[in-house]
Design a protein around this nucleic acid. Sequence first.
DNA 1: TGCGGATATGCAACTAATTGCATAGTACCC
DNA 2: GGGTACTATGCAATTAGTTGCATATCCGCA
Lengths: 182, 182
Amino acid sequence: MALRHVVLTVLARGGLSGYEITKNFEAVYSHFWRASHQQVYRELARLHEAGRVTAKVVTQKGRPNKNVYTLTKQGLDELREWVSASTEFPKPQNDLLVKLLALGIANPQEFRVEFDRVAKDAEEWLVKLRGLQRDCLRTRKSWSEHDEVLYLALRRGLLVGEAQARWLSEVDVYLRKRKITA
Amino acid sequence: MALRHVVLTVLARGGLSGYEITKNFEAVYSHFWRASHQQVYRELARLHEAGRVTAKVVTQKGRPNKNVYTLTKQGLDELREWVSASTEFPKPQNDLLVKLLALGIANPQEFRVEFDRVAKDAEEWLVKLRGLQRDCLRTRKSWSEHDEVLYLALRRGLLVGEAQARWLSEVDVYLRKRKITA
DNA sequence: TGCGGATATGCAACTAATTGCATAGTACCC
DNA sequence: GGGTACTATGCAATTAGTTGCATATCCGCA
């Protein structure tokens, strides 16, 4: 039950509406957590039902009203408990690898096109993260603790992304050896 | 719909029973795909329903009978199509990172214990993969194409695992800086 | 006044994954 | 004969995630 705790975590920094949480996910957390607005609203409804958050309608000018959710003591307790609880081992699932295993019966040329697209995406992802890192480091002096952790999130994206890119280049060597070229 | 294609892929190498597929997952594929026997049996039932596989009861001596599933032309076509189709970008979700974000309101000592456990698991995982790599490389001369791809699977596990370990050591530095020690 | 776009929320249906449980044959040991 | 373990299959309930659709407010623009 991960999304539940992610939502509790973002609410721990202050009350937010479902919409604001979703926008936060897209803007700040997108390189380590993704969730659709439907998921967020449903999760908020559940948390409210379970007494982990309180809801308050805030009237706005110039835009529709919003429901601002705030952690209750129970919500805070549940989050605290979760942080200390055991963490699941991340799933090693990878689609591209399965495709490599099925390559024997597939059309290698067509696969090569798809492989190149994946490799290009991986490179672009890395370029994007490196850009973010540069922007981040410029303000290093004035980081809050939250900024520090966001930087660690970025580091994780970079390290894992670089590993993936290196792996893709090893796969490329293998494909060339098998004369599977674009 | 990934498991479906994983099952098709393993069946492409020859007919197998649900039990054999499950055992295969545990023994050979466990470091890049995991699925419970319940998942496998259900997926086989769906594939059978959809005409992607045929089933044949094989009577055995000394053990219960089994259902051996074999790919049909339709199954082979679906697999071929999937291999060339576009691949989803892997999810960057990570629990430990969320826990770091929630650290401000949690018990740092308790988190440290859990963090150390995760780091230890990551190290053990790497040791296991390095052992597998050594065993693998010993027989390099006589590798089939399938063995080559299994080696690529191992390489992926190693590269990603090493990235994760490096990230954990960066997190460790951060935790020490904040005087969060075991 | 009507249209597109951002803000804001949510239901319903579907698909996928997890967990717990149930069954049954055989082998081997004590 | 009873207990344990391995082979072999599967249902049912729950939880999680995805996709499509629906609704409503407000702004700016033509």
